[in-house]
Design a protein around this nucleic acid. Sequence first.
DNA 1: GCGAGGACATACTGCGGAGTATGTTCGCCC
DNA 2: GGGCGAACATACTCCGCAGTATGTCCTCGC
Lengths: 209, 209
Amino acid sequence: MQPTAANDLVSPDRREEVLAAAAECFMRRGYEATSMDDVADMLGATKGRVYHHFRSKPELFFEVFRRAIFILIREAGVHETGPGTAADRLRRMSRAHILCMMETQAFQRNLTLGVDLYRFGETSEEHKATLEDLMNLRRGYEDAFRRTFAAGAADGSMKALDPSLAMRTLLGAINWVAVWYSPRPGETRAHRETLAEEIVAQVLGGYLA
Amino acid sequence: MQPTAANDLVSPDRREEVLAAAAECFMRRGYEATSMDDVADMLGATKGRVYHHFRSKPELFFEVFRRAIFILIREAGVHETGPGTAADRLRRMSRAHILCMMETQAFQRNLTLGVDLYRFGETSEEHKATLEDLMNLRRGYEDAFRRTFAAGAADGSMKALDPSLAMRTLLGAINWVAVWYSPRPGETRAHRETLAEEIVAQVLGGYLA
DNA sequence: GCGAGGACATACTGCGGAGTATGTTCGCCC
DNA sequence: GGGCGAACATACTCCGCAGTATGTCCTCGC
């Protein structure tokens, strides 16, 4: 296979393909139930390819997890700073978060798996350390919501609620989207945006002043 | 060991102990990662005991799943019929649901696992059938929320929203409790009831008229 | 008190999956 | 044009786990 222009668009990161396949497998069958052969099969390849890019199964999972958070921070977290009231900013953050749940579902579902692994898993010391880092990333993302709830109480755009609890109920409602959402054939971005808007309208109603 | 009065309180269903241990293990490590030996270890027993009460690992999981739904229906679902407006009933249902998430967390967390197994799992025909039954039970429980949202639009106690979507956002917020909740040492039932009340107040706000 | 069966424990088998060691191919650079 | 390394494929090893076959104890009914 020649390095054509078309290939340059796809192959510069063959590693990405492996990562995406792993995310899909982990979401479908769970972490433990997924074999490295499963990931390879999804790519029409063999284990050799997977192990060439990732040292072990845990590290592969950690990369999926890390990618999931980076996407969330880039798409939703950035809206913490922005124009308007805290309620406005929270609306934009939630809307972007929901779209992430729908469009990068495979990655996002693994966030919950990772948290369980952290809470209960028996892992090596090295893995424990990287898991700690990943949890801090996640906590940092959640803090953006916490702060915005506090800001909303301060600027009067939202009720004065316990920011931590409010963050959890809100994130619960919108994280759950990744659980039940399943893309319909022929669905467009516009459809998803409308749906996201509708969800935000329902969910945020309880927090507004 | 003699069949004393104290033992009669515990042992009439030694099977229950196995079931509870399995729920705990499945929650901690996930379905696949849990070995039958893990379940036995938690009881200070061996596999023999587990296989004496349950034919196979899938059937053990199915029983955990079934129990989880039965608890929800008994504790929360029953409040669908009751006095007051639809909003009142929904409040009682949500409150009970949240308490279930906190107090039977191990069982409830497995509901999500089961749904994934249903959506993606490759199981035998026989297991597929029982999974279908379990999903119908779950759907039936969700329908109670759907109907109550519709009733709320009808009796004017709640906004006229898409009942299905409202059900999903509400259940998302309150199901998520099982994900983050972790009982504090010395916590009493009263603490949990207060917390549940607070969550309901926050979450239901968006749906009320 | 004795036979039977429930409630386990013990000791195996067989397979699937993580990880490894070693080929193999192809493009690139000198 | 040749050698070198990236990007895989192939062919193993070894261990852990589901399931089974069989043994053991204790209790209850008669």
